[in-house]
Design a binder for these strands. Structure first.
Length: 599
RNA sequence: GGGCGCGUAGCCUAGCCUGGAUAGGGCACCGGGUUCCUAACCCGGCGGUCGAGGGUUCAAAUCCCUCCGCGCCCGCCA
């Protein structure tokens, strides 16, 4: 009697919930009637929501058949025969070893479109939860412009935060700003003295006109590679920088230090803002030194079970038991001079996060894998039972292979990529449209360009290694951001011309019976499951795949079925287009792509 | 050397967690489509020993083992 259950919160968000419940109930009843022992959990796990016309729900009977020593096809046929067709699931058949259910397409259309149009911008979102999540991502040192190798972190992290929010969790995004290390000290070391006093090679490398109107990340970061190279050859200068590092840790940093870091960071954030990426909070590493948290961590670690003092006064944890590589069976957490290391400060940061949030997620390049393990080992050593969750991605490598390096000239600046993308996008717009004012052309070009870049990063699973190639990153066709945005703009145009660009959208579900219409509805119906999976698994690339699949099917529908000249079906088709545009718009929102009304 | 990740058509990629029906897409290439809601589109074709081998299973791209190739990491750096 699945039909008479009270709807749950999930039912109000996922159109498939009632059907899946009915399918499970039917299978369990049939198994009982046939005397086949069958665990509800087993049915729940095996029953698949396929949402394809041939079998909306499918149940493979192989496992069950093996348990009762009967041939699977025979069991499938028996089960299918024992499940009476209902209004909810009017067709139950067996095919080979499968029991297949088909839903009434009219009901599928009715409930899906009804749900999408009723929920609007929240279609696909889960029930509001209270379990807070902190997502830390990007966290690049404020020492110069973003390059492409790093931007994958920001795009994945931002999208994950969006997906988690949609799933119902209260999310806080954090950017951890490293203002304590040698790298930010180098920038301060340079910019707190007159350029005339800079080492000659560094001065020469920074000569010439200021780039990008003096954008701080480019201006302040320009001498960085030259200084880095210079320090390798000149120990006396390196010692001077090292002295600055120590002064920063002991709170004697020059007053300009924080201001310079802030200025560079602002430049970097301006680039990210073009991609729709912003942060709720910035956490400065120095804060944990200032407020005593680091000192407390060091003291607790020195008293920890596996703490050892080295001959020269440094302190370490014997970490062999934590599964770390044999070579690093000791994790040094305090230098001989008593100062802290990055990982110790990171422990203080993570203790603060774990105290404040139910879930702590860190988006990290896989080159930080060992650091993550070390961090876990130190948390364990402190008796902290909770752990952050790590989302690891592979760095994007240079076109000729190898890591993108600022020094080797193989780095591609994010700003250059975006500018090039905008230039190409403008060309594409002007090729098709001569009726738009320049500012609208510019706005479309910017949205298309940033959409292309975001989608290009998001279409691939994070653990996959990616080589940066201009032609691929700037693709506007096929499986791309602009393809999806275009399919949104088309729907917008239809609704505009139909003078139906606002609700309500009355529809008669039985009028939407074309295979292309039903295929579109089926994809719409899967959106809530897709969002939930992306948030749960952190596999945000599945959202990109979904958006492309949805847009692709809309294009097929669009070519096959006239909407505005649809006669009796016109209103219902307009409703379908509206539901589609709503869903795709919601998906674009999760992906961080700008939905364009026209392009 | 050890650890982690990756290997699917000429190129890129989904599916791998949780084994299940004919391995889905895209680019490129070939052939079609616009008196009709935007052709950044659609339709058709071409192209696959799922790195190799073994194992588990009624069933393996998916799980296990071995090997090969590529990338990253193995600091009292961050």
């Amino acid at each position: 009697m699945a039909d008479s259950r009270a709807p749950t919160a999930a039912e109000a968000t996922d159109p498939w919930t009632p059907w899946a419940a009915a399918g499970r109930a039917g299978l369990l009843d049939a198994a009982r009637a046939l005397g086949v022992p069958c665990e509800p959990a087993a049915v729940e796990a095996a029953l698949e929501v396929k949402a394809v016309p041939e079998h909306d729900l499918a149940f493979p009977t192989h496992r069950l058949a093996a348990a009762v020593h009967r041939p699977a096809p025979e069991l499938a046929a028996a089960l299918a025969g024992a499940i009476p067709p209902s209004r909810t699931l009017p067709q139950v058949t067996s095919e080979g070893a499968y029991v297949n259910f088909r839903v009434d397409p009219v009901e599928l259309v009715r409930s899906t479109l009804g749900l999408v149009l009723a929920r609007g911008a929240t279609y696909g979102h889960g029930p509001r939860g209270t379990s807070s999540v902190c997502v830390e991502h990007t966290s690049a040192n404020p020492t110069g412009p973003f390059h492409i190798g790093r931007v994958r972190n920001a795009i994945i992290g931002d999208t994950l935060a969006r997906a988690l929010r949609a799933s119902g969790a209260p999310v806080t995004t954090q950017y951890y700003v490293d203002d304590m290390g040698r790298q930010s000290a180098m920038i301060t070391w340079l910019w707190t003295r007159p350029e005339a006093d800079w080492p000659a090679p560094v001065r020469e490398a920074s000569a010439g006109p200021t780039e990008r109107g003096g954008k701080a990340d480019h201006r302040r970061g320009r001498p960085y590679p030259a200084l880095s190279a210079y320090l390798k050859e000149h120990p006396e200068t390196a010692a001077s920088v090292a002295d600055l590092v120590r002064r920063i840790e002991t709170g004697e940093a020059p007053p300009e230090h924080a201001a310079i870091a802030r200025e560079v960071l602002a430049g970097m954030l301006a680039s990210l803002a073009r991609l729709g990426i912003a942060f709720d909070e910035f956490v400065w590493e120095s804060q944990f030194v200032r407020d005593g948290a680091v000192a407390s961590v060091l003291a607790r670690l020195r008293a920890a079970p596996h703490a050892v003092e080295e001959e020269n006064g440094a302190w370490a944890i014997e970490a062999g038991s934590y599964g770390l590589p044999k070579e690093s069976d000791r994790v040094v957490f305090q230098r001989a001079d008593g100062t802290s290391l990055y990982v110790s400060r990171d422990v203080a940061y993570h203790l603060a996060k774990l105290g404040r949030y139910a879930r702590v997620v860190d988006v990290l390049g896989q080159d930080h894998r060992l650091h993550a393990r070390t961090l876990e080992a130190l948390l364990a050593e402190l008796g902290e039972p909770r752990r952050p969750e790590f989302v690891l991605y592979q760095d994007i490598t240079a076109p000729q292979g190898g890591r993108m390096s600022t020094r080797g000239g193989s780095a591609v600046w994010l700003d250059d990529l975006l500018d090039e993308a905008v230039e190409r996008a403008r060309g594409e717009v002007l090729q098709r449209r001569n009726d738009l004012p320049p500012d609208q052309v510019a706005a479309i070009a910017e949205a298309v360009a940033t959409g292309a870049v975001r989608f290009h990063v998001l279409r691939v699973a994070p653990e996959k290694p990616v080589k940066f190639r201009w032609e691929e990153a700037l693709s506007f066709e096929g499986r791309s951001g602009p393809f999806v945005q275009y399919a949104y703009a088309r729907a917008s145009s239809v609704l505009r011309k139909g003078e139906a660009d606002r609700p309500p959208y009355p529809f008669e579900p039985e009028r939407l019976a074309d295979p292309e219409e039903l295929a579109l509805v089926r994809i719409l119906s899967r959106f809530p499951r897709t969002v939930a999976y992306a948030a749960r698994s952190a596999h945000v690339h599945t959202l990109a795949g979904y958006a492309h699949e949805l847009a692709d099917q809309f294009n097929r529908f669009y070519h096959a079925v006239p909407v505005l000249t649809g006669g009796e079906a016109r209103a219902s088709r307009i409703a379908l287009v509206a539901a589609y545009r709503q869903t795709l718009g919601n998906a674009l929102g999760l992906l961080g792509l700008v939905p364009l009304e026209t392009m």
